[in-house]
Amino acid sequence: NITNLCPFDEVFNATRFASVYAWNRKRISNCVADYSVLYNLAPFFTFKCYGVSPTKLNDLCFTNVYADSFVIRGDEVRQIAPGQTGNIADYNYKLPDDFTGCVIAWNSNKLDSKVSGNYNYLYRLFRKSNLKPFERDISTEIYQAGNKPCNGVAGFNCYFPLRSYSFRPTYGVGHQPYRVVVLSFELLHAPATVCGPKKST
């Protein structure tokens, strides 16, 4: 009989979030998941669920729940959905087409922007091929755009693959930082360890 609440607040209220290319994953298990708490945590810009209804979450049980978190800019949030393409979905964080879970995003301009520009958040701009779903690539190998090998040196047709967002508070919403948490629900042929409040007794 599990009584402890799932530590969603640790994920959502973390002081620092990860850069999207090096997104963070927390496995959540053996706890009571009260998803209604999430609705009250922040004024969400996005709370979209796929393959599951957000209002039914509190009635369900899962084997595992994974919470992935990272920062992107406002106009990239739409890429965090099944079947999307674009720089983020292709080279940084890719959801599977049959994704079961929820994408939660909110504006973090007050936390993640600086007047002089916050350069701490990076994204991958160049990659030889698209990522597979939930693949994480943290390599910093020089990207070869031409025929000549780069031998690890940046220059003509040889690019450092990561680029930094420079978040400034005066930017338009599309270029402001957004914190994203992706909850993916895993149903294996194994005992369910993460249940809503109704199912945990």
Rank of each mutant, 00 (worst) to 15 (best):
N87V: 15
Y35H: 08
L183H: 02
N40A: 12
F156C: 04
T63W: 09
A192W: 12
R136F: 05
G101R: 02
A190L: 14
D90L: 09
Y35K: 09
Y165N: 01
S19Y: 02
Y178I: 09
T100D: 06
T193H: 12
V37H: 12
R78A: 13
Y119W: 06
F12M: 09
N107M: 03
L111V: 14
K128L: 08
T15G: 09
K114D: 08
N58M: 10
Y165E: 00
F126Y: 03
L187A: 13
L122E: 11
A105N: 08
S129D: 13
I88R: 02
T15V: 11
V37G: 12
Y159G: 00
A190R: 13
N92S: 04
F134M: 09
N4A: 13
K26L: 10
Q176A: 02
D68R: 04
S129W: 08
L162Q: 03
T3K: 13
N151R: 12
P191Q: 14
N30L: 07
I28Y: 15
V153E: 13
A22E: 12
S129A: 12
P7Q: 13
I142G: 01
I138V: 14
V11E: 05
R78S: 12
F185V: 08
A192T: 13
I138H: 08
V103P: 00
V103R: 03
G146K: 02
C49S: 03
N87R: 15
F45L: 15
A18S: 12
N58W: 10
R78K: 14
P43A: 10
C31L: 06
L5S: 13
G172S: 01
F160Y: 14
Y178S: 06
L38I: 14
S36W: 07
V65Y: 08
F62H: 07
P191I: 09
E76V: 03
S184H: 13
F70C: 00
R73C: 04
A14N: 10
A81S: 08
K56C: 08
S36F: 07
R168C: 00
G172F: 01
N109Q: 05
Y178N: 09
N30Y: 09
V182R: 02
L188I: 14
A192I: 13
R163D: 08
Q79S: 05
A14G: 09
R124P: 00
N107P: 06
